[in-house]
Design a protein around this nucleic acid. Sequence first.
DNA 1: CTGTTAGCGCTTTCAC
DNA 2: GTGAAAGCGCTAACAG
Lengths: 347, 347
Amino acid sequence: MDRKKTMTDGWSGSVTLNDVARAADVHPSTVSRALDPDKSGRVKEATRLHIIEVADKLGYRPDLVARGLKSGKTGTIGVIAADLGNTFVTPIIHGVAASLEKAGALPTLAETQDDHPRMVNILDHMMSRRVDGIVALAARQADKEALERANQSVPVVLAGRPLDDTDLIQVVQDNEAGGRLVADHLHSLGHEIVAQLRGPDDVANFPRRARGFTSAAVAHGMQELSFDEAAERPVIDEGQRLMDELLDASPHLPTAVFAHNDLMAIGALASLRNRGIRVPEDVSLVGYNNLPTTAYLTPPLTTVRYQSFEVGRLAGKAIMALLAGEAPANVLLEPRLVSRGSTRRVR
Amino acid sequence: MDRKKTMTDGWSGSVTLNDVARAADVHPSTVSRALDPDKSGRVKEATRLHIIEVADKLGYRPDLVARGLKSGKTGTIGVIAADLGNTFVTPIIHGVAASLEKAGALPTLAETQDDHPRMVNILDHMMSRRVDGIVALAARQADKEALERANQSVPVVLAGRPLDDTDLIQVVQDNEAGGRLVADHLHSLGHEIVAQLRGPDDVANFPRRARGFTSAAVAHGMQELSFDEAAERPVIDEGQRLMDELLDASPHLPTAVFAHNDLMAIGALASLRNRGIRVPEDVSLVGYNNLPTTAYLTPPLTTVRYQSFEVGRLAGKAIMALLAGEAPANVLLEPRLVSRGSTRRVR
DNA sequence: CTGTTAGCGCTTTCAC
DNA sequence: GTGAAAGCGCTAACAG
């Protein structure tokens, strides 16, 4: 490993603007100008070319940290997720990264584990690092004040998880509409007795889905089994557990079940299968998010498309717009039902 | 939005060490010492407490950018993935983030899209940002020199994707052993005619899996159908396409197929199903990675466990060790076969 | 067009 | 124990 050695006698990365200036026999500020696309006009073409040549030969790399100290901009956007292990957030991060790249910015990641004190810590830490902005995928209602406080210092955009009663810019899906779509779909198939497997209450997506579903179900005159227990976390195991409990608690089977996300639906499917209840022959099942593998389940899962990448992309765009002094609007993406084999007309 | 206003008259984040010094009526360097855990001993207890109190009251946050300029350490580790849309990398990033957090560092992300020039750009950019180290998940053989060059400046660790003929520290799984496990498993079930659906050649994981599989198959006296086409990318669609081609090209069916990852296996399953070929009755099928949903497919997929989170965690640990001047060893994690319903004894 | 000067916020000698 | 002074690498007035 050469690093140790080269570190001592100066590796390529440690060539500074001053070194270039000395080698090119000009003043540092001239180098600064020559290398800045915006200002290279103010430098004589010949010197500019000379400087660039010298800089190249020396392997000069601008120090963005030093530049950041001066300019106040770090080119870094903090991205705060609840849990990077959750496949739902990945496409959002992907989208954010794609948007930032166009502006030469880079995302820096942290995880709250859905823990409020951790969220506060992370916000603090990110301010200390002078991130230019924050995209929060992890917002829970409890985090609202902390996020709004952060927004006093740098722009904050919420992505994928909305918050009630806030002025923060939000890029999310219309979850109520999504819930309604599911109820509409089930109604159109003749279902009259339905139930929900709820995701955690404190993540606004889930109560909104529930509200949309219930309101449409009521409007259609459907009967919803009352089952208010919510999953601790919206994961496969919890879906299975809730489905088990619903089956144990209910005197009669619903003809259709709406699981608040695909992972919970997969768990529900396992629960039903274990008891010999067939999907969709005995019970129809709907998920949410349209994860890539849901189409390959048996039966393929009916679900609601959540354009996570798009959410991330637009959130990234919004944060860059805020930094440019513009005032981006909230975005509410429209859900779309993806009808597959796990739902069928009730006999 | 208060930001604009507060930006003008000074928001909480802009309280500097100098402000604290002035308010506490001491010299800036005393504040610096009082707030540095390592040096707080050299400050009188009373002044220290006073300073801390004042700092708190003013809402002082150290500026990590300024500190970084001085110390040369940014507390940032560059993480380079090929494609954040690939669910295989997410747990690795998750693991890296978890390890870094313990050291107060944060990952900064970029994507190569498996494009070599982009890799070079990203490395450049990350050096410019003075990242303290780099964890590369995206290594292709073509990137070797660029990564080794970066390693002259800051420590580089490879995670999840190995590289041949390099001294870079690597944290990966023993893919050859994984391939052998699959062949052993199929042999133990009496399979004699087998085939592989190959992942891209330029990602060392896949040729290694292929090599391990073939060598064990040969050792067991099994016959491997020659089918050398490799997927462009290791995804569902490509798995389906390759399976289709294999079926079209081969005069007789293999009794078992090894898809180089789970996504390709899912595609293969769809292809087989479309032709009325049953898994596992007619053909056994094996994947690789043990993605969470594979257990819920019909049939549940036999696969090889890849401890991605662990790979990330250890890679993060390795990079922090390198920064601490230690010399971590390469890590080669042992794969484990997860036997499920998609493979059965041949009749 | 180019050089001079100053300083971003912090740490770190070196004095006293 | 604390203060003074210098400087990390860069940019941004301001001169000339």
